[in-house]
């Protein structure tokens, strides 16, 4: 039964991605992509990685759909069917690479444990109860730091090339009143609550900064979509500070750790440090994602001439 389930998920993932490439219309490709995200989340569930399944659910259901739809609104030409040309020059290296990967999978011994044991042994030093949070924020802190930096640079790039940086100017009229405002009143507190819940969960269970941040970002995008002015009321200075807060908190941590030891990011082993960095990173991820979505070229912005 397990094997049948895995085979069907795998085959449908391959089939759906083939149809996305071959789709004749943009809209069909978008809906297929949303379905692809759903199936991918099921696949991660089967691979026993609930962290990635939760992240995929949050990004795939919430933000990816909104971004793709806004892109669709900004496009003006129908999609041209992608021509499938398989050149021999490309085919042979691809087949070689695929063979190499298949061989490497066969090469992994049956009882391979990975780095799991090492992480579990070092876990008590971090005072955290969940190994993945420990890896992301402590053992591989550099990676997370630089990822937050990449996100920040992406936001800066988007804010540079879009025509306005006035958040109020991008506000949209509320769609389909009165249900539109009703659903915001109902869902927004729940989104904030569940985002906070995922963040809190990260200390000892699947969840954490990224998942919580994406849900908070969805709450912000929901406000924006419904035309609520409160995002625009936030002072610009606070917006900027919170955008940088994740990167900044890592920087402060790295600098202050120089007083304890001679190396960067070797903080004293307290849970408070790590959780503080995680909370700051959550806010900054949420704000960065909101800025990215608000920077997307939806049709309405163009027409209003802002």
């Amino acid at each position: 039964m397990d094997l049948v389930f895995d085979l069907i998920i795998g085959l449908s993932l391959a089939g759906v991605s083939w149809r996305i490439v071959r789709a004749r219309e943009h809209f069909q490709a978008i809906v297929l992509f949303i379905t692809f995200g759903l199936l991918l989340s099921l696949a991660w569930t089967r691979l026993k990685s609930p962290d990635i399944a939760i992240a995929e659910a949050a990004v795939g259901a919430g933000l990816a759909g909104v971004l793709l739809m806004d892109t669709l609104g900004a496009l003006s030409s129908p999609r041209e069917r992608a021509k499938v040309v398989i050149s021999l020059k490309l085919l042979i290296p691809c087949l070689f690479l695929a063979g190499l990967m298949a061989y490497s999978i066969l090469y992994i011994p049956e009882d391979f444990q990975g780095l799991g044991i090492v992480v579990r042994e070092a876990l008590p030093q971090t005072h955290l109860e969940y190994p993945i949070t420990a890896v992301l924020l402590d053992f591989r802190g550099y990676d997370t730091w630089l990822e937050l930096g990449v996100l920040l640079v992406a936001v800066l790039g988007v804010l540079c090339i879009r025509r306005t940086d006035n958040i109020k100017g991008t506000m949209l009229p509320a769609p389909a009143e009165p249900v539109g405002s009703w659903i915001v009143k109902l869902l927004l507190p729940l989104m904030v609550l569940i985002g906070g819940y995922l963040l809190w969960l990260g200390a000892f269970a699947p969840g954490g900064a990224f998942q919580g941040g994406v849900v908070l970002a969805s709450a912000g995008v929901m406000l924006w979509q419904s035309g609520h002015p409160s995002l625009g009321l936030m002072p610009r200075l606070w917006w900027k500070i919170l955008l940088c807060s994740g990167f900044l908190s890592f920087l402060i941590l790295a600098f202050s750790s120089l007083f304890y030891t001679d190396q960067l990011l070797t903080h004293p082993a307290t849970k408070t440090w790590i959780l503080g960095v995680e909370y700051a990173a959550t806010l900054s991820i949420a704000l960065c994602l909101i800025s990215l979505v608000l920077g997307s070229p939806a049709r309405n912005h163009e027409n209003k001439g802002v």
């Binding site: 609930p50 399944a53 939760i54 769609p175 569940i194 979509q225 049709r299």
Partner: peptide
């Protein structure tokens, strides 16, 4: 089936967030 209760959070997120895509849909088409 897999006895890992935290996957329920993924289901919760799907239930919470799918309506956002519909809102974006009616804005753009």
């Amino acid at each position: 089936a897999l006895e890992s209760p935290f996957i329920r959070n993924a289901a919760l997120l799907f239930a919470l967030l799918t309506v956002m895509t519909v809102l974006a849909f009616i804005r753009n088409t």
